[in-house]
Design a protein around this nucleic acid. Structure first.
Length: 848
RNA sequence: GGGCGAUUAGCUCAGUUGGUUAGAGCACCUGCCCUACAAGCAGGGGGUCGUAGGUUCGAGUCCUACAUCGCCCACCA
């Protein structure tokens, strides 16, 4: 016997181990159609947050659904080495132990990092387990394992040989804290309160000067020209002359270049080719020298003369002070401008001239754009609008800087010997070759995830069977970093889209709508939620509380109300199981189905149909609402109540069937409680996890009977309202000659019933177009109130009749609207007229 | 500057291709411990769907403009 209250702690105990041991999570039944999702690999740096819980729940729902529905479902788990993030954390830990990480031998450092990885991988496994995720652990991968490393090298070498990877000196985004190059995607622009420093650059041998406005005076040591627009009449006479670079006191030319915008600032730009991407281009056009003025850690180098060794921001202050002293500073104009920050370390990015490896994006991106034009080859985004996000990125993307000055990652398969470069899968045999010390951007390996995890570059059975993946589930914030790159790499290396569908969800926010973050301290640990409300409640809440692609506010009250729903299900099950104690599955019979049984069976089959439809469209919020309403309103509020008055073997069969269907439909959302109850159901199979997903049975649909019962329900509700409003005593005598089912619904006992001729005075009645019921009670004190209520109802009906009449008099409406709609309106109008008759009649009676 | 999303009940959100009187949870009001469930049951109140136009027999839904909030991308010497 079930406890009276749902206890998630008891219910969720031990089931995961059982499922796992029985091998239910494993894929590979070749007799079935394949369905594959690869998990977005979490970083090995930390623990999973609510966003992960949401993301993985959605995937588990899909996988469990498809598995039950007869597919060979593979959900492939794995983790990401997360280059910068992990290295930063490992370094931090070492520093706390008083060890300078960069002074270690690379090999020794890597050992520490691998230990870290093992520890955190263990944590993540525990969390996956606690979330109830049906991952096929036999296929688990890690981005740095041998197979994936092989895939990475193969891809690098092939792209290099095709001319799509090259090494070059460019302005890249440098993170002085992590001391590595970054890609443009890893730079976050933030509004910063800075200033425009107006500086005098004197013309050589003259006492006139050009007023240069810059936000970055500390870079003036790298200035190799000053540019004005060729069309700018103010400065025509200075083009070709030299100016004296302040502090440095050397001559640099005044050049004419379109880059200088006459409308912006003073129209005079200092050109620092080694520290600004635009200036770099200007420098190329004018063959200017490139002078790097900073060290890799953001301090000034020897080119900054006396400022060498100062931090870049210190140097700025000092330079400004000195300019002021020398009378070269005209003004400091405060301004807000956006400045790039490192996504990881949050420090200001330094545009920096550096030799790095790049992926040539244009040809790869063009192929994606072409591919997206064809419905059978494209990635289908859900919701569709996110396709535009990817396509736009493909249109404007430029070359991807993939080398990182880190230790944690895939070492670049390039070797150098003097000026020679060798790129290959293995190191060259000869002596004297030195491998590039850098590693690849983490996303370079993530981009291969949908196929590298399945065995690529080898033509494995798994790759043939599970690629392209059916679906990828991730947040919209990851589209540029990951989805886009998987798409072009997948297309380039396999000739196919990496996944058929890409189901996008939003971000988790706190109750005030703020993004959850460590700095705000508003993060919620999913494991705490699970402890308090259970995994099932959390999962159902996450999956059903927002529309696809929308953000989700975490609201503990909603999780609580989900718990209540599960408790409701629990108690409904308790009722069913109590009544099934003497029931064996062999007894199941559908003989003499009552109206209510036909009704619930019809409702159930309609539910199956809509649930399947919305599951297939990833509309889990709709699925949730549908099941919730069916369970609570149809099954619990009506069918179970009706079953109480009429419990026979047929009823028990229907109760069992209906509960079984509910459990199965809910299983993908709440795996634990559904398994718990399922195991107690007569005729249950080995596990609900591997039982068949419900199928609609058209022969169980009884349209007319359903309508009849719904009519009764409407009548019963009307009667209940009447009784409450008119304070009809519970034991009032009743005259009714309609269906006894209605008396059951109203919980009216036989001994309350009287004959029609026993109705004398002081009785009230409720009537609709099908039924009328009479209550004998002293209603004198209520006459005023009743009259008032009748008056209200009368007004309401009259308004409706008026509206509907004029609608039906509208010839345009009658001729253009669909026929069934018009018929419906006519029928309703008729009904309303009858209702009004009844109301008027009663009103007049009472008035006497 | 370009793009996207949001604006619906006190709060948090649904609302599929336009189609009866716009829904849910929580909160609120009334009455109930009825042997599945008081974390429950039976009823009920509450919204001119951001604003202004337009298309249509019919608009929360489609079109145009605007407002407010949020996000993405680009630029910012």
């Amino acid at each position: 016997m079930l406890e009276t209250k749902y206890n998630h702690l008891e219910v969720e105990k031990n089931k995961y181990e059982m499922w796992k041991q029985k091998g239910y999570f494993n894929s590979g039944d070749l007799s079935k159609k394949p369905y594959c999702i690869v998990i977005p690999p979490p970083n090995v740096t930390g623990k999973l947050h609510l966003g992960h819980a949401w993301d993985t729940t959605l995937q588990d729902i899909l996988i469990r659904y498809k598995r039950m529905d007869g597919y060979d479902a593979l959900w492939l788990p794995g983790m990401d080495h997360a280059g910068i993030a992990t290295q930063a954390k490992v370094d931090k830990k070492l520093k706390e132990q008083g060890i300078q990480p960069r002074e270690m031998e690379r090999e020794d450092w890597l050992k520490v990092a691998w230990d870290w990885k093992e520890e955190y991988a263990l944590n993540i496994h525990k969390q996956w387990e606690k979330l109830g995720l049906s991952l096929d652990y036999s296929k688990e991968r890690f981005t740095l394992d041998d197979g994936l490393s092989k895939a990475v090298r193969k891809v690098f070498v092939d792209l290099y040989n095709e001319g799509l990877i090259y090494r070059g000196e460019r302005i890249i985004n440098w993170d002085p804290e992590a001391m590595t190059a970054l890609s443009t995607e890893e730079v976050i622009y933030k509004e910063v309160e800075g200033a425009f420093y107006h500086i005098k650059y004197f013309i050589e041998d003259s006492d006139t000067y050009l007023e240069v406005a810059t936000t970055r005076p500390e870079t003036l040591f790298g200035d190799t020209a000053v540019a004005v627009n060729p069309s700018d009449s103010r400065y025509q006479q200075f083009i070709g002359k030299n100016v004296i670079l302040p502090i440095v006191n050397k001559k640099i030319p005044v050049i004419a270049d379109e880059h200088a915008d006459p409308e912006f600032g003073t129209g005079v730009v200092k050109i620092t080719p080694a520290h600004d991407p635009n200036d770099f281009e200007v420098g190329n056009r004018h063959q200017l020298e490139r002078i790097i003025v900073m060290n890799l850690d953001g301090t000034m180098n020897e080119n900054a003369l006396g400022y060498q060794g100062l931090d870049r921001f210190e140097c700025r202050k000092k330079v400004v002070e000195d300019l002021e002293k020398q009378g070269l500073l005209i003004q400091i104009e405060p301004m807000v401008h956006s400045v790039g920050h490192s996504e990881r370390t949050d420090v200001m990015i330094e545009p920096y001239l550096s030799k790095q490896w790049f992926v040539k994006m244009r040809p790869l991106a063009d192929r994606v754009l072409e591919n997206q034009k064809n419905d059978t080859t494209k990635v289908h985004f859900v919701p569709e609008r996110f396709e535009k996000v990817m396509n736009h990125w493909m249109e404007i993307t430029y070359d991807w800087c993939i080398s990182r000055q880190l230790w944690w990652g895939h070492r670049i398969p390039a070797w150098y010997k003097g000026d020679q470069v060798y790129v290959g899968l293995e190191a060259p045999k000869e002596e004297g070759w030195v491998q590039d010390p850098d590693v690849l951007d983490t996303w370079f390996s993530s981009a291969l995830w949908p196929f590298s995890t399945l065995g690529f570059p080898d033509e494995t059975e798994d790759l043939k069977r599970y690629y392209p993946n059916q679906c990828l589930v991730t947040g919209y914030d990851i589209i540029p970093f990951w989805v886009n790159r998987m798409t072009f790499q997948g297309l380039h290396f396999t000739g196919q889209r990496p996944f058929k569908d890409c189901f996008i969800h939003g971000l988790i926010r706190d109750k005030q709508g703020r993004k959850m973050s460590k700095s705000l301290g508003n993060g919620v640990d999913p494991m705490d939620v699970i402890d308090t409300y259970g995994c099932d409640a959390l999962r159902f809440f996450l999956a059903t509380s927002s529309a696809p692609g929308m953000d989700l506010r975490y609201d503990e009250e909603k999780v609580k109300s989900t718990w209540n729903f599960i408790n409701k299900l629990w108690n409904a099950s308790r009722f069913v199981l109590m009544n099934l104690e003497d029931f064996k599955i062999e007894d199941a019979t559908y003989e003499n189905l009552t109206l209510s049984e036909k009704w619930i069976m019809t409702k159930k089959n309609q539910l199956i149909k809509t649930v399947r439809k919305h599951m297939d469209q990833y509309e889990f919020n709709v699925v949730g609402t549908e099941i919730y309403n069916f369970v609570w309103n149809d099954f619990c509020d009506w069918y179970i109540e009706l079953a109480k008055a009429h419990m026979n073997t047929t009823t028990k069969t229907v109760l069992r069937d209906t509960l079984e269907t509910i459990l199965k439909l809910l299983h993908p959302f709440m795996p634990y409680v559904t398994e718990e109850i399922y195991q107690m159901l007569p005729g249950h199979e080995e596990s609900i996890m591997i039982s068949a997903y419900p199928v609609e049975h058209k022969e169980e649909i009884y349209e007319n009977d359903m309508k009849t019962l719904e009519n009764m329900i409407a009548f019963v509700t009307k009667v209940r309202t009447y009784k409450l409003e008119n304070q009809v005593p519970k034991d009032a005598k009743v005259y009714f000659d309609g269906d006894s089912l209605i008396l059951d619904m109203l919980k009216i006992h036989e001994d309350q019933l009287i004959k029609k001729d026993e109705l004398v005075n002081n009785y009230g009645s409720v009537k609709n177009d099908n039924y009328e019921i009479y209550f004998v009670f002293d209603q004198n004190q209520n006459i005023e109130k009743e009259l008032e209520l009748l008056q209200k109802e009368k007004e309401k009906l009259e308004a409706n009749i008026k509206r509907r009449t004029s609608l039906l008099e509208n010839k345009n409406y009658v001729s253009k609207a669909p026929q069934n709609l018009v018929d419906n309106e006519r029928n309703t109008l008729e009904k309303e007229k009858q209702e009004l008759e009844i109301v008027l009649q009663k009103y007049n009676e009472l008035k006497k």
